[in-house]
């Protein structure tokens, strides 16, 4: 579904991603882990070109999206993204947040939009908050609305950029529950996270990124319990409970 070839990203002289190759199949749940500053968020953001790659190719469903002639806005419609800081639109209600883009892009009509928003909010357990403004919601609720907003575009893949890193500890569970449910329903997902328990539970593959390269990629049982790369071992010894 997604093929990455020789992806490179520089910010000025700083080489953040160095020759990344990856293949993601339909229905896979890729969890990307690694030390902070390793380039894992940049990798995710290159997939929908929020960060522009400086070299390499990214193919999404047999379309070369790094081609300048590619209509990236159309491609992004099938790639939902969830941000660390939620990025809800504060001037719109919860319902408005969810329906604004689909309505503007003609995905559905005004009368169908509210019904669809209610369905999605019901999925994340917030149907009763449709007319509230985001300022009234807790962090966990905001992130669940953000997930519903991304799902409203009927994406084929969901990208999660550290979705629980900005949350108070007691709110992490409710967001991970929604994501676990999504994974169970078969959504193709790519998740950058520090939640190792979650990775172990839902990942089809875990990618360990260090210093701008994929140091190791394997199913969670293998990567967590029998890491091959010494850098993976060093990282895991720091983050896994002893």
């Amino acid at each position: 579904m997604i093929t990455v070839k020789g992806l490179e990203k520089r910010f000025g002289d700083n080489l953040v991603l160095n020759q990344i190759d990856a293949q993601i199949e339909m229905g896979e749940k890729i969890v990307v882990v690694g030390p902070s500053g390793s380039g894992k968020s940049t990798f995710l953001r290159c997939i929908n070109r929020l960060d522009e790659p400086t070299a390499g190719e990214i193919w999404v469903e047999n379309e070369l999206i790094t081609d300048p002639a590619c209509d990236i806005n159309r491609v992004r419609q099938k790639m939902g993204m969830v941000f660390q800081h939620f990025n809800l639109f504060p001037h719109l209600t919860v319902g408005g947040n969810i329906t604004m883009a689909p309505l503007h892009l003609g995905l559905y009509k005004a009368d169908g939009a509210r019904k669809r928003a209610l369905e999605l909010l019901d999925r994340v357990g917030l149907a009763d908050r449709i007319d509230d403004y985001p300022v009234r919601l807790s962090g966990g609720q905001k992130q669940r609305v953000a997930i519903a907003r991304a799902l409203a575009m009927n994406p084929k893949i969901m990208l999660f950029d550290e979705p629980t890193s900005a949350l108070d500890p007691e709110m992490i569970g409710e967001v991970l529950d929604v994501m676990t449910e999504l994974a169970r329903e078969g959504m193709t997902m790519m998740v950058v996270t520090h939640e190792m328990g979650f990775a172990r539970k839902i990942a089809s593959r875990v990618m360990f990124i260090d210093d701008g390269v994929i140091a190791e990629a394997a199913p969670p049982a293998e990567l967590f319990d029998h890491p091959k790369n010494p850098r993976t071992k060093a990282f895991l010894s720091k983050v896994l409970p002893h």
Binding site: L50, N73, N87, A101, H104
Partner: peptide, 27 residues
């Protein structure tokens, strides 16, 4: 206005000018 607002709009497939008009400018 926080940079993430434009990014969230763009990630949904909105063009730069639509995201500017519908998301950034009202704020």
């Amino acid at each position: 206005v926080d940079r993430g607002q434009m990014e969230a709009g763009r990630s949904l497939g909105l063009t730069y000018s639509v995201a500017m008009r519908r998301i950034v400018l009202p704020q």
